[in-house]
Design a protein around this nucleic acid. Structure first.
Length: 354
DNA sequence: AAGTCGGGGGA
DNA sequence: TCCCCAGACTT
């Protein structure tokens, strides 16, 4: 039942068209038996969860430069790692990244497990990432099922069941296609195919190595697959953020609790976010002014209109919330995007800031 | 099974 | 605008 001929067709396409990526071992070297650093594969795969290759590249280079080994990362300061992750989103990934690095060092002698089952036990590693590390880093015949693979399989077999209900069936088909030879290259090949040729809107069937066996191509349904169950509309929430600067240039900031939205991230103190601005008081008594602009931002499941208040504080100021960060310890790039937007709008209100 | 959790780029 | 992206985790 397993189809090795089609896998071979895809692999020869990959040998010619594999994208050069910072974490990737090119197919020529892979065929020669050279394996990538499991630490690099793990790092890239976690960053790539629901995130585009283009967005990940810079972060991957930065992280692996700052922390070249899993031991380096395990020893890193939490706030530093969260700050470097700022802007990439899904911040639970960064918290789990650190947890996972520390487990690998403490319980696995600094070596990533080489099989799917053991990898699955690690924080932040789910079915996809476990299969990706096992196949790509250790060349095990595990099947990766990401958004690309779901789309490719739905088309290859002309499956009209909507996602996520179709996931088990698509996973089964993907497993049947996975070869015993070069499974790591095959995993990357099938994802490259989905990313470059079997694209969501207008698939380039004319140059697809799998055009012959593709059932959706024959049926003329490729562009409308995979079907997905409709998603809910996003409500709008509102809130207020308070940006205060002390006379010595220190800003009043706080670190969010690990759980929930923007967990563990450096943020401006403020109200909760709801349909109406919740009852609240500013983090410190001050002459708050309104810069007259709101930060507009869209999260996964709601839109946010974040009003801003700005104040200059005297040296002896005693806030009820947050802590002062001196200017040499405050990098705006450590803020999640919505908070950086708010800061950019507030800058103009501090007359002596550019 | 459904909800939570970011952000950006392309159509 | 809307959709998508090398998903994981919680409820």
């Amino acid at each position: 039942m397993r189809d090795t001929a089609q896998a071979a067709d895809l692999l020869s396409w990959y040998d010619q068209h594999a994208r050069a990526l910072p974490w990737r071992v090119p197919p020529a070297e892979s065929r020669a038996g050279h394996r990538p650093d499991p630490y690099h594969i793990w790092m890239s795969e976690v960053m790539l969860q629901q995130t585009t290759v283009a967005a990940v590249k810079e972060y991957f280079t930065r992280f692996t430069t700052l922390w070249p080994t899993v031991q380096d990362l395990a020893a890193a300061d939490d706030a530093r790692v969260m700050g470097e992750w700022a802007g990439l989103g899904y911040y639970a990934r960064a918290r789990n990244l650190l947890k996972c690095a520390r487990v690998v060092v403490a319980e696995h002698n600094g070596q990533f497990p080489d099989n799917r089952e053991a990898l699955l036990k690690l924080p932040g590693i789910g079915p996809y990432t476990a299969a990706a590390i096992a196949s790509i880093a250790f060349n095990r015949a595990e099947t990766v099922v990401d958004g690309n693979v779901e789309r490719v399989m739905a088309r290859l077999f002309d499956i009209h069941t909507p996602l996520p209900a179709a996931k088990p069936e698509l996973t089964e088909k993907a497993a049947l296609m996975t070869p015993g030879d070069r499974p790591g290259d095959y995993a990357q090949a099938v994802m490259d195919l989905g990313a470059t040729i079997c694209s969501p809107r207008s698939p380039a069937c004319g140059i697809c190595p799998w055009v012959a066996p593709c059932a959706a191509r024959a049926a003329g349904t490729a562009a409308e697959l995979p079907k997905k169950t409709p998603k809910k509309p996003k409500p709008t929430r509102v809130g207020v953020a308070y940006i205060a600067r002390r006379a010595d240039g220190a800003f009043l900031l706080e670190t969010r609790p690990d759980k929930g939205l923007l967990g563990g991230m450096l943020c401006w103190p403020g109200s909760d976010w709801a349909e109406e601005v919740p009852e609240h008081s500013p983090p410190v008594e001050a002459d708050w002014r309104d810069p007259g602009a709101e930060a507009l931002h869209t999260f996964t499941h709601f839109h946010l209109r974040l009003a801003i208040r700005v104040a200059d504080l005297p040296r002896g100021s005693n806030p009820e919330r947050g802590q002062f960060l001196p200017p040499e310890q405050f990098r705006p790039s450590d803020l999640p995007t919505v908070m950086r937007k708010a800061f950019d709008l507030a800058r103009a209100s501090f007359v002596d800031m550019s």
